[in-house]
Amino acid sequence: MDYVWHFGVIWDYRMVFVRGAWITAQLTLYSTLIGLSLGLLFGLFRSSTIAVLRAPAAVYIEFFRATPVLVQLVWIYYSLPILTGLQLSGIASVSVGLGLHAAAYFAEIFRAGINSIDKGQWDAARSIGMGYGQAMWRIILPQAIRRMVPPFINEFATLIKLTTLGSVLAVYELLHEANNLINNTYRPLEVYTALAVAFAVLIYPIILLSQRLERHWRTNS
């Protein structure tokens, strides 16, 4: 073991990392937005009493949880243009793919949060004349959101990690940039180490926050 580390190359090529991180951030943001909005919708459908809403939502959620993300991504990237004529850029494909994937998990978080609220809260809301929407928005969701935030943050952290799959679809996110850099510098050890450290530095505080919030809300309720 007399490998001589040359972390200097990382500093020399720091802009490559910044560029990659920017794409990673974009992918995370877009897929989170898609995942949250679709997830809320599917979560509400899934806990609905109306079977025509509940059944498709259940199928969607179970399907996306039962298939590998990478398969979902390459399917969207290669099959969607053929089937629909819709040519998506790499970034769009990965955002949509991860978004659809995340929606299944977000939906379950929404559903579990909503179900965790005592049925008596619905009774009380309905007894003062609230409809479903008012009761959900003013009474149920504000209480449920506390229980949803920690798992949301965890899912968000997972999404950041999953963006590395974009490298397979030639999206210039962090991992892809790192691979290119290795082709130029022949320094895989330094580059991959720096990459891992960069992700850890990015994600660990997020996980910490989620744990803190969870503990805080458990002791304050």
């Binding site: 005592d118 008596g120 809260q121 009774d123 809301a125 309905r126 007894s127 209480q143 309720s221």
Partner: peptide, 15 residues
């Protein structure tokens, strides 16, 4: 429902 008030065994106040 707004013409009938209801009081529950478990109160069901909005916490």
């Amino acid at each position: 429902r707004t013409r009938m008030g209801m009081v529950f065994q478990s109160f069901n106040l909005f916490p």
